[in-house]
């Protein structure tokens, strides 16, 4: 069976030649939640954007390929690629405010996509949207559908975006730190909703986060990213039981624990960082040689 998402040896560079993604390989099986962890600037969002076909114009893919259910995105014409990505994927974004169009009502934004992209009739789209709003536990759909984004709370907006993401039954959802912009009490509810809908709909998720606590709760597999390179990849349970890479161990040590939030808070060790720097340099060296 084809993986839902299969990224192989993906390298992307900035105009100055610096690599932001370093031969990234990563596969997500159908219905699986794959966590992508790493510190800020590691390139997590970049991977998500590459999959969704919205890399910034300054970032160029120089090697590797991305397959959605076996289809190599790089080999498709732009139009066909857009259609495929639109039909098979969706994004749950980090900031639910800017991800909604401020001047359009929620209802029209949500149905529009089903009607204009997937060719549903208005009634079917409306029924579908209401069903999804119910699934994300929005109890007053009439009010929400008539609202403008700024009239809803952050948690409500994120529920709307989750509903919108699942509405067209994509095979893969990229969730880019979907709870970071929310306050703590809401974070848990939103996380629970995503997991619940993911199970019911059997959707694969590439879940970007820097929070190992979240990783442990929701994912089956994890990729640990550092400076655009996957330094460790494992089943979630195995990773927590026996982290292999020193950086993963350092990350775990740096994660505050509820029982003793300060005692265990350690910054990543200098020796670990030096090791990482050497590892990255060696990888770049090895990469440059075959490419001149």
């Amino acid at each position: 069976m084809n993986a839902c998402l299969d990224i192989r040896d993906l390298s992307a560079v900035l105009p100055n030649g610096q690599r932001v993604l370093r031969s990234v390989s990563l596969a997500v099986q159908p219905g699986e939640v794959r966590a992508l962890v790493g510190e800020s600037g590691a390139g997590k969002t970049m991977i998500g954007k590459a999959v969704l076909g919205v890399l910034p114009s300054s970032v160029r893919i120089v090697e590797g390929d991305i397959r959605l259910e076996g289809e190599d995105l790089g080999r498709l014409q732009p139009k066909a690629r857009r259609t495929l990505i639109g039909a098979r994927t969706a994004l749950i974004p980090q900031d639910p405010l800017t991800a909604l169009n401020p001047s359009r009502r929620i209802g029209s934004q949500m149905t529009d996509r089903l009607v204009r992209i997937l060719g549903w009739n208005g009634e079917r789209a409306d029924t579908r949207i209401r069903q999804l709003l119910d699934e994300v536990q929005i109890r007053d759909p009439d009010r929400v559908l008539k609202s403008y984004p700024h009239e809803l709370s952050g948690g409500m907006r994120q529920r709307v975006l989750i509903a919108a993401a699942f509405a067209a039954e994509p095979r893969l959802i990229v969730a880019d730190e979907p709870t970071t912009a929310l306050d703590v009490t809401v974070q848990k509810q939103i996380l629970r909703l995503i997991v619940q809908l993911q199970r019911e709909h059997g959707t694969a998720i590439l879940f970007v986060t820097h929070d190992l606590g979240v990783v442990a709760k929701i994912s089956q597999k994890v990729s640990v990213l550092y400076a655009g390179k996957v330094v460790e990849e494992a089943e979630t349970a195995a990773l927590f039981a026996a982290p292999q890479h020193p950086y993963t161990r350092a990350l775990m040590a740096a994660t505050p624990r509820y029982t003793d939030p300060f005692a265990s808070l350690k910054p990543v060790d200098d020796a670990v960082l030096a090791g990482l720097a050497a590892e990255i340099a060696a990888a770049d060296q090895a990469w440059r040689r075959p490419h001149g």
């Binding site: 639109g86 994927t89 969706a90 169009n101 992209i117």
Partner: peptide, 21 residues
Amino acid sequence: MDYVENARIAGYGRIGIMLRE
């Protein structure tokens, strides 16, 4: 803004996004 990127992901054409979003 992210909503424009979202529309790209959903598969809207460039001109459609410019005019409708």
